[in-house]
Design a protein around this nucleic acid. Structure first.
Lengths: 189, 189
DNA sequence: GGTCTCATGTAAATAGTTACATGATTAT
DNA sequence: ATAATCATGTAACTATTTACATGAGACC
């Protein structure tokens, strides 16, 4: 695995939990690591093919019938090694690109009330995400100890909670400021 | 501008501050919106060509001599309109992909001390970014009122500050937990 | 004369999404 | 029967980075 295809490592990681099909991975990803990772079929299936040809994963079984044409993949020993060596490598810094901040930065060209709208919308999205995380946290507190309720899963959940709350806090702060800017403008007229 | 090329809007926004060359944009972007946006020449120059052919920007002057072969671009009225309509459109949700969280999630396959290393490294990066932002904040408090010290620029700065602090807080929280996991493991041996 | 910064640009590779095509099985 | 879900896969497009090529002027 020469390229830095993070998708490949996500797949290895997913298979380290247990054998899965491409379809399973998409499903599982959405409801477990969905708050910080996403994959599309367009990436998933070709990656599966690549990883198999490299011997990092292998087909455990291929069914026809129940679940028509289903391929179950399993991690090989080489695959686990590759996963391990990736985890401990420093994370590569990816360039930041935040569209909301970009819009806000050029905000003087539009009405402050219009900026409020887009910030409020972003706030709403974040609030719903936070509600989901709190729900997951509560569920995890009831069940215990088994994955994905491992301490590691909890750490990623805490990330969502801590950052999400900070995000809301920032939204509220600048919504106030935008409100003031709006009032000043209105009074000037 | 049919496609959702955000780079195009970033360029329009940059030119809304004043006429610039592609080279200027890269420089300016790094030291003003650098904490939430980045552009590469590979995106910049082709985008400039596209925007010009669409009449959203135009060449103000083309020099040879000082600054050899320099093209100064300027925003057209149509370009400003396009920028405005983009700003007020809701931000599109981009799929989240956080490599550090992905590694942490699959953390049980490696030593907790190795996880500490990658988290500490990420913490260091964030801490340096925060120091830069605080420096910019202090500078802005001294100069006043003119762009980019506008309230909008301040809002993006506050974002970096609020989120950055939350990030450090989370790092410290889980570094503690990783420390405990490490101790438990050591005691077991 | 050498190196640094200014300045523009392209080619190739990488990453990733979206939309579509196909077909089986299961539940209503 | 028909709709939903299971399941795999590809093609086309969009986005973006990296690395390179080129050359002028400024500074030492």
């Amino acid at each position: 695995m020469v390229k830095t295809r993070t998708t490949g490592y996500a797949v290895l990681g997913l298979l380290s939990i247990g054998p899965m099909s491409g379809y399973d991975m998409k499903k599982f990803a959405e409801e477990s690591i969905g708050h910080f990772w996403s994959e599309s079929y367009g990436q998933l299936y070709p990656t599966l093919k690549d990883l198999e040809s490299e011997g990092l994963i292998e087909i455990q079984s291929e069914q026809r019938g129940a679940g028509a044409n289903r391929k179950l993949f399993r991690l090989t020993a080489a695959g686990l090694d590759e996963l391990r060596s990736w985890i401990v490598r420093p994370v590569r810094q990816r360039p930041v690109r935040d569209e909301l901040l970009l819009k806000l930065f050029f905000g003087r060209h539009v009405e402050a009330s219009d900026l409020r709208s887009i910030v409020e919308r972003a706030r709403g999205v974040q609030e719903r995400a936070l509600a989901d995380l709190r729900h997951a946290e509560k569920e995890a507190a009831e069940r215990t100890q088994e994955p994905p309720d491992s301490p590691y899963w909890m750490m990623t959940l805490r990330f969502g909670l801590v950052m999400g709350n900070a995000y809301l806090q920032w939204c509220d702060e600048i919504l106030d400021q935008l409100h003031d800017l709006d009032r000043i403008r209105t009074e000037e007229e």
